[in-house]
Each structure stands twice: as structure tokens, then as C-alpha cells.
Simulated scan of single mutants.
Amino acid sequence: MKAVLCVEHGPPEKLVVRDVPTPEPGRGQVRISVKAVGVNFPDTLIIQNLYQFKPALPFSPGGECAGVVSAVGEGVADIAVGDEVIAMTGHGAMAEEVIANRGQIVKMAPGMPFDVAAGFTMTYGTSHHALKQRGALKPGETLLVLGAAGGVGLTAVELGKVMGAKVIAAASSDEKLALCREMGADEVINYATEDLKERIKALTNGRGVDVIYDPVGDRYAEPSFRGIAWNGRYLVIGFAAGAIPALPLNLPLIKGASIVGVFWGAFTQAEPALHQQNMEELLRWYAEGKLKPHVSRHFALDEGADAIRWMMDRKALGKIVLTV
């Protein structure tokens, strides 16, 4: 079978495409014939050995995929060959066949396209866990989403509206903000041309925002935090803009605010039952038409390196996927 491989750490241009043996599932595992692979920001980190998880070389990137079960290992009774499934693998999905543990798999919603399914779990899963469990977002509250046109950011905009919040989307271009409007954002901020702190103040009549969803970090963290409301929650998702920010700790003190870490991958392992409940709710919302995943670009499996470069250069609007 064909796979995209990281044989030495570095930029995506070092990735290679090679034929490798087709894997066989062990106990509690299934093998999936991959139809589509979601590309995510962690893929840009894992190939550079900068991510929290550090698989041994060589490995295939790709943390999520959708496909058809092609083989079932011993001890798996509720998944059968031919089932259409989504798998959250962490890495290894950029291949024609992938092995997944039973706990990493959910069945696709009826009629769900493979490309939509492949990009569903990590982005919606991260944002749902962040807003529901970590941010305790309530109807009527105001949510600020930074990097709002990216993979996780756009799902946070959608989910914020589903959960009854007023959503302010912040991004770096008018094109990105137009997409955020289409996905339900009530207000927008172009932080490339506008003063982020002052715009938050203006849009909230000086009150501030209740929850900040930040996958960007860097120089955007402090001005957004200065716009947080009393008892606000600042959700640390990631650092796509580069630098890990250092916030003055007097800021959460004077606002009675919380800085809350969000590590969805660890959550799925530490609290698998709650994770399954989250996925069931997300798939139900999708089936009910409340969620409309936005896939902006498709790449072929052979173009895996190009897809990761596209993500690394922050060109993605919503999701990008590999089709197999």
C-alpha cells in the first residue's frame, strides 16, 4: 500500500511517498481502507518533532481519517467489515490503509461524505470540548474566536451559535471574515488592520467577552485577554501564530478570570466515555443540519506534503483534506 512518510524530522518538503506493507489488525483493532484524511495544524508540528506526541521514525502523519473497515481484529464485536467509520489515530492516517483501536473509532452519520467525515473529529471535537467542558459557555454569553477562519476556529464559530452565544470572529483578512459571517458570526474583527482590544471594547459596550477561544497565541493573546469580562474564561487551544505568549498574571486577578488549557487529544484518552458522548452529540447536530462543515480544498494522497505546507502557511479556510 502507499503511504506518506516522515523519515526524518523537518519541513513538509522532507516527506516521501513510499510503498509499505499492508498492516494487520491486532486484538481490539480494525483496519480501515482510507477514503479521506483530515489535515490539521498538529500535522505541521509532528513532522518537525515539535508536538506533544513524538512517534518513532519513520511514521505517517495524519491524525484523523474516514473510510471503510477492511478487517477486524479479535475482540471487536460491534464493528464489521464494510462499516463506514471515522478514526482518530493521532498519526498514521496518510496512507491507503490504517490500523485504529476500537476506542478511536466512531461510525459515520448516515449519508455523510467521506471528505466531511475525515475533517470532522479533531476540529469539532476540540471546539466542542473547549466550549462545553472547559469554557462552560452558556446561552446569551459572548464568545470571541481568534483565528476564526481556520480549521478549529470556524467550528468554534458554528458551535458557539448552536450553543446560544453571541459570536465575535477575529481573523487576519476580510476574505476570512466574510466566511465567518457565512458560518454565523454576529460581529467580526480584522486584527491585521484594527486594534483588537479597542474593537472588543466597542462591540461589547465596554463589558468584555465571556469566553475567548484562542488557537493563535503570539501577540494576539494579551490584547484579547484585556478585553475579557468579569469571570471570563480564556481557552488556550494552541499557538498557530508562532510564539507562546506570556500573560501578566495581574490581568486574570483583576478580572476574576480563568486561563483554561484545552488538550483534546489527552481528554479523549483520559475521559473516553465523555468523549464518546461529545461525538454522539456532534454527529446528531450534523444529522439535524445544525453543523455545516466547510471543506475549502482537496489534495491527493501524493500531495500530502503540499497539504501540510498549505496548512503551515496559514492558507486554509475551514478544513483541507486528502482524498485517497
Rank of each mutant, 00 (worst) to 15 (best):
L283P: 02
G28W: 10
F239L: 04
T121K: 13
G208I: 02
H294S: 07
G28P: 11
G153W: 00
F263V: 11
E280W: 10
E182R: 10
S173E: 05
G208V: 05
K138R: 14
M279G: 06
G103N: 12
K319N: 02
R134G: 08
A56K: 15
A202P: 02
V72D: 09
G160E: 05
R226F: 12
V76D: 07
H9T: 14
A3Y: 06
G217F: 00
H294K: 13
F53R: 15
L282I: 07
V68R: 12
V7I: 15
E158F: 04
P252F: 03
E13K: 10
N101R: 15
K197C: 13
A266F: 15
H129M: 14
G318V: 06
L143F: 08
T323R: 15
R219H: 14
I308R: 11
G125C: 01
T268F: 03
A178I: 13
Y213C: 00
T193D: 04
D313V: 12
A202F: 09
D210M: 08
A266I: 14
K107L: 13
P139N: 02
L143K: 03
L203P: 02
Q277I: 12
E194V: 04
A117H: 01
M108P: 08
I244Y: 07
R226H: 11
G140A: 10
Q269W: 14
E194F: 06
G232Y: 09
P215N: 03
V157N: 01
M1D: 11
G232S: 12
V16W: 12
P245A: 02
P55S: 05
L235G: 01
P23D: 11
P58S: 08
E198R: 14
G10P: 04
K35M: 13
A243E: 15
N205Q: 15
G82W: 09
G160I: 02
V30C: 02
Q52W: 15
L249S: 13
Q29V: 05
E13N: 15
V16A: 10
N190L: 03
